[in-house]
Design a binder for these strands. Sequence first.
DNA 1: TATTGTTATACTCTATAACTATA
DNA 2: TATAGTTATAGAGTATAACAATA
Lengths: 168, 168
Amino acid sequence: MVAKDAGEARDLSWGLSNRLFFKLYQCANMLHKTGTRALEDYSITTQQWAVLGALTRPAFEKGVAVNDLAAFLLVTRQNLAGVLQRLETMNYVERTVDSNDNRSRLIRLTIKGRSLWDANMRPVIADYYREALSGFSTEDKIHLVHYLDKMLRNFNNLDSEAHGEGGA
Amino acid sequence: MVAKDAGEARDLSWGLSNRLFFKLYQCANMLHKTGTRALEDYSITTQQWAVLGALTRPAFEKGVAVNDLAAFLLVTRQNLAGVLQRLETMNYVERTVDSNDNRSRLIRLTIKGRSLWDANMRPVIADYYREALSGFSTEDKIHLVHYLDKMLRNFNNLDSEAHGEGGA
DNA sequence: TATTGTTATACTCTATAACTATA
DNA sequence: TATAGTTATAGAGTATAACAATA
């Protein structure tokens, strides 16, 4: 009976975790679908949104190295390069040489990019947040951020292990 | 002073919501990155994982129409077609004609697909859940599922509006 | 006419490796 | 030698439109 109970407990745990990850998967899909649609007037995808949003951070406003930006966004520098290229073509970001290290390039918003964010994207995104989080109290949001942050740390551990840093 | 306070309240709300969505964005990225890596021995992506997982549901075991599967996964039927094609090439799913409606195709797992899921994928995914949810109590998981489900309903509303169904 | 599913196209994103230029 | 960034390539996913077969 012990073995059977243990099996049942494992099944319950599987079901709940499975449900949780399926919801997360669906939320991820819908975030990209509805987010990209919300910003379609500006031809901005959610990845580009994340980059532009990061560049408005006070710490990054004077420019941020590609590597640092990639680490912040949790994407590889190679894949960030593609997104940056598209944003540069649209004249929303620009690259300057870091005078402290000639290998490094500092990425920052252009005037046009800043204006796009402040005048167009931010209001649209504020509306988007309002709708996507309707029914959420401030407490709910704080709890959810906490859970997502906790899961994110676990994901980062999983990712580090996969790169052989924590080899068993 | 009222206007200023209102502005500050809006900023606080913006900051919290922005943080929440950035975490969600990062979790989405990491789910695909670590999930696909966890299943790389079988060349299964997270989208294919979702399809195969759906097909193991008791309700779908005898076959499910493409449209119903797409609705369940929250993807378009066109995009599902591509994923199904890749899974069919690998011999993990098969299509049969619905005898009740000759237009419809019922998708179901093949023996090989069922075996891949039971013998290989499920154990790997169970480990993956354990690591990705380490530190989460059952209560935590229930709360998180609840929040994700709530957000998902909001996303679906946003999506319906965008398709002109609820036009203001 | 409407619906089911498929095909076609164009683009973005991702993973990976190889390259350059600096350090 | 190691690091910062770029370029190149192949594959997967996504949005959208158009199409064939069936209802």
